[in-house]
């Protein structure tokens, strides 16, 4: 029964997965622009995009067909979180000013 319900939503899961991946790519693009031009684009829209990408990717994990897409989106989000953390910590070492 449950399997049948899941099957019915499969298309939805795949779509969510694709949106997750596209969201992740947009996040990466914003990050690239920020790094290459030194114009800070990691503002509210950035976090909004992140809060959209993460749940969409998690939804995509539920179906076997869209699992790879979900993992893809999630790893992008995870990468950005780790990146932000590392930059924050190393920033303290690299720039000596308060």
């Amino acid at each position: 029964m449950e399997l049948v319900t899941l099957k019915r939503f499969e298309k939805g899961f795949v779509t969510a997965g694709w949106f997750g991946v596209i969201g992740g790519l947009c996040l990466l693009l914003l990050l690239n622009i920020t790094l290459l031009t030194n114009i800070d684009l990691t503002n509210n829209n950035f976090y909004l995009l992140m809060y959209l990408t993460a749940p969409l990717s998690v939804i995509a994990l539920f179906s076997k067909k869209s699992r790879s897409l979900g993992l893809w989106g999630l790893s992008v989000v995870l990468f950005i979180m780790i990146f932000t953390g590392i930059i924050f910590i190393i920033g303290w070492i690299v720039v000596p000013f308060p």
Binding site: V21, G24, L25, L28, L29, L31, N32, L35, L36, W72, V76, F79, I80, F83, I87
Partner: peptide, 11 residues
């Protein structure tokens, strides 16, 4: 994805 990862990783 791979292309967009180049800049953050090198940064």
């Amino acid at each position: 994805t791979v292309i967009l990862l180049i800049a953050p990783i090198s940064y």
